[in-house]
């Protein structure tokens, strides 16, 4: 352990290092010493204890929320528990391994998914939208969102009955730091509508507003653009569109038409 008597010029270098006055080369030399010798490490630690209380004078400044988002993205951490979607009853929908598998086998996804859907127990469809109950059989739609390279970026599955969409990454290409993928719904002949920011490394589950749900269909498409981490600041895509996908319907097309009509009717009732 150093005593004041031991602390000569060498020790002053450690103090200068901690204070921060050394130029790049001298700094690097001390940093190297700290890594390799215990004496240097101890001397530097001692000076840190002495001088660091000065930082109590520095005013705290809250960083923008996107800094934490970038850190999480960099480290590929899970979303914080507070923001994590509520876990619902375990079922096929919540089986992420299945979705991930579907995402990887994206070319086969439509076939595989439809096979899954038709094997689910289904009730008889009511004859009219008026009498449709909330427990009406579900309609599904799917979209394989392909990148310009031809490689599938994501697979989107839309559950009309539960008004949600799950977007599973297949092989999305890397984005520059500070950028994130945003999913858009493009109605035929219409402007893109923002759906949500999606993840590149984990499935994203999105609740669909009735107005958005009503626009889903074989004439609409999904697209992914490169945006700032917090999303497009303008409400329209601002970066390059890196992937696109057509939406295909579930086995019973009629089923869809009725479902969408029911959703439209419900939305219309709500807005009155």
């Amino acid at each position: 352990m150093n005593t004041p008597a031991d602390e000569g010029n060498d020790n002053l270098r450690y103090a200068e290092y901690v204070l921060g006055v050394l130029d790049a080369d001298a700094r690097a030399a001390v940093a190297q010493e700290v890594q390799t010798t215990d004496e240097a490490a101890a001397a530097v630690a001692l000076w840190q204890r002495r001088l660091m209380p000065l930082s109590e004078q520095i005013a705290s400044v809250t960083p923008a929320p996107y800094v934490w988002a970038r850190i999480r993205d960099d480290l590929r951490l899970d979303a914080p528990t507070a923001a994590a979607p509520r876990r619902e009853s375990k079922g096929l929908w919540n089986n992420l391994a299945l979705w991930h598998w579907l995402g990887i086998g994206a070319t086969a996804v439509a076939v595989a998914l439809l096979a899954v859907v038709v094997t689910l127990p289904r009730e008889n469809m009511p004859a009219t939208a008026e009498t449709s109950s909330p427990k009406a059989p579900a309609g599904y739609m799917v979209s394989t969102i392909q990148q310009d390279s031809g490689v599938t970026g994501w697979t989107a599955t839309m559950d009309l009955d539960r008004a949600r969409m799950i977007v599973v990454p297949a092989a999305p290409s890397a984005l520059p730091s500070g950028k994130a993928p945003e999913l858009w719904l493009i109605p035929a002949g219409g402007k893109p509508i923002s759906v949500a920011m999606i993840k590149r490394d984990a499935p994203t589950t999105i609740a669909l507003e009735p107005s958005l749900l009503a626009k889903l269909g074989p004439t609409a498409a999904l697209a992914v653009s490169v945006e700032p981490v917090g999303g497009s600041p303008t409400g329209q895509p601002t970066g390059a569109v890196i992937a696109r996908g057509a939406i295909s319907g579930s086995p019973e097309t009629h089923d869809h038409v009725v479902r969408v009509a029911a959703i439209n009717a419900a939305a219309a009732r709500k807005s009155v």
Binding site: S55, I58, A59, S60, V61, T62, P63, V67, W68, I71
Partner: peptide, 11 residues
């Protein structure tokens, strides 16, 4: 992060 980031950001 919640407890220390504003201090470190100030620094």
């Amino acid at each position: 992060y919640k407890r220390t980031s504003s201090k470190l950001f100030g620094v």
